[in-house]
Structures are given as C-alpha cells and as structure tokens.
Nucleic acid binder design. Structure first.
Lengths: 157, 157
DNA sequence: CTGAATCCCATCGGATACTG
DNA sequence: CAGTATCCGATGGGATTCAG
C-alpha cells in the first residue's frame, strides 16, 4: 500500500455513550483495534501487505490448488505478468507462498500456499464468501445512495 | 478470451508433495475463485471497495462502538480528515456504515456499522485476529527472505 | 515459460486552508 | 466539530521490451 509515516500522537479519547455491546471477540476485546500508533499495529502491518489489488485473489486461487505462473495468471483474471511477479514475490517474501522451480525445459515454476498462507486461507475465504453473498446488496446500496444524491443535486442546484 | 480451463497441464506437479487437500468451502468450490472476467467477480468488486488503506481499520473501530468523526479519527491512528471523510463516504455509499447527524451546536455526527457492515465484521475480525497472531511470523519470514537475498547478491555481485 | 527492466500515467492519500 | 476545496508528491500497476 502507500507509504505510512509514523509521527506519534496518541491520546485515546474513550468518551462515554457506548451502547452497542459487542459479542466478545477472540483474544482481547480491542487488541487488534489498538492501532493508535502508540506502537505498530499488526492489523495495519498485515493489511499493508496483502491489501493490494491482487494478493488476496492470488491466494484464493492458490488455495484451490498449486498453480504454475501462467495458469495462475489466467486464473486470476487480467493481470500483467510484471504485477503478478511482484505480487508473488511479496507473498513469498512474507512467507505466505512457496515458489518451487522445476528444472525442466522450458523451465516451469509452481506456486502454492505455505503453511502460514494456508492458515490465512480460512479468513480470506470468509471474506470471499461474504463478498459472494453480499456484493449485490452492496451494489444496491450504492445505487440507492447515488440515486438520492442525484435527486438532491437535481433539486438543490 | 474464454476460460482457458486448465487443460490438464501434464507437467504440473512433478515434485509430488503438493496435494493440499482443501476442506470443502461453503457454496460451490471455486465459486468465488471464478474471477476470469467472463463476468464480474464479486470478490474483486468488494475488494476494490474495502481494499484501500483505511476502510477495514475504520470498520474494525466502528465494530467496537459507534464513534463520532473526531473520535474515529483519533482512534484509527493518523489519518487526514479529508481521507477519513472520503473513506466514510465510500463505506456509507456501499451501505456498510450509517451516518447519523445530531442537530446540536456545534454539530456532531455519529458513525456506526449498518446491519450489512455488521455482517462483514466477523470476517474482518478473523483477518484481524490472524494478523495479531501471525504478524510476527510474517516479519520473521520477511527478514529471512531478505537476508538470504542479501547473501545471494553478496556472492553473485 | 518465467520474469527482469523501462516507461508512464491514473490514483491514493497527505498537507493545508477555508466554511457552517 | 464536521466537512469541502486545492494542491501535489508518492506509488501502484499496466504496456512493452528484452533475457535465460
């Protein structure tokens, strides 16, 4: 993702008026929510890594089965080979993907999820499932929002 | 371009050992993995929306409790008000966040997750939990990768 | 086939200043 | 306090070309 300077500035407000009780999440309640840059935030860090345009899609594909470079490229949709290479390097660097070079002629390279990558796959599939189920709802909300905004402008202008 | 289904690449896993059996995911196996741009891919669409630098962090914070603009801004870390506004507009547009204007003086605005947003919260927390548990492992892998790459260059150059 | 190297532009997001 | 309006640098990522 983009660069992130980290000037320090904390002071969590914690004003009152809360009312929505949250079902106790795993681990500490606001553990992952504590991203006040009083220290590095793991969520922020991880998200900066896999929050790019392709990483998640690539991992989902590799979650189906190991794939070679070309296969992966076709499977993931429309992606330039440069960007796919960069994405895979990043995932490999972070230990999420394993890269196995087959010394054949011509050379072929097989990518697959590492154990660490596999441990993340569940959450990614959770996201994917939600997306499949709710993309329509989102599109609907968006259309409604834009429509109302359109009428408002139409009236106001 | 058509599917270019995997025409049984005979040269796939000569290394054996790949074979990661996938636990049957919800819905169809590759439903969400079918992003070959033969039609729109919901995962891609959703991800394009919340895959920016702040949306997920904002939603996680709002998942803890409703927050006012300023509170949210401090809670999420270091974010310009412009970007926070844009992010919130996007989330609101997509129906993930609700914006309630309190007609006080000075005006105050409370943001909270909509039902749709709440339905996504679980998956986001899954990601967050994974991040909390594995950010160290990722950092470690990264360090190892860079180290090895360093030695290689040191030798080769 | 895999992938490194360039070029190049759209955009994302940060800083700053100004309204209600 | 919440939000809008500019300005602008950094970056992501696509197209293309070259190489092992």
């Amino acid at each position: 993702m983009k660069a992130t300077k980290q000037p320090q500035e904390g002071t969590l407000p914690s004003s009152g008026e809360a009312e929505v009780t949250i079902p106790a999440p795993p681990h500490s309640p606001q553990e992952w929510a504590a991203c006040n840059y009083e220290g590095p935030c793991p969520v922020r860090e991880v998200y900066d890594r896999i929050g790019d345009k392709w990483s998640v899609l690539v991992m989902l594909q590799l979650g189906v089965r190991p794939l070679r470079f070309g296969e992966l490229r076709r499977a993931v949709g429309v992606i330039s080979q440069r960007v796919l290479t960069v994405t895979l390097r990043g995932l490999e660097r972070d230990g999420l993907v394993r890269r196995d070079v087959m010394d054949t002629r011509p050379p072929s390279v097989v990518y697959q999820l590492s154990p660490l990558g596999l441990s993340l796959l569940g959450s990614l599939r959770g996201l994917a499932a939600w997306a499949s189920e709710n993309s329509v709802a989102m599109a609907h909300a968006r259309a409604a929002f834009d429509a109302e905004l359109g009428t408002m402008q139409g009236n106001a202008v």
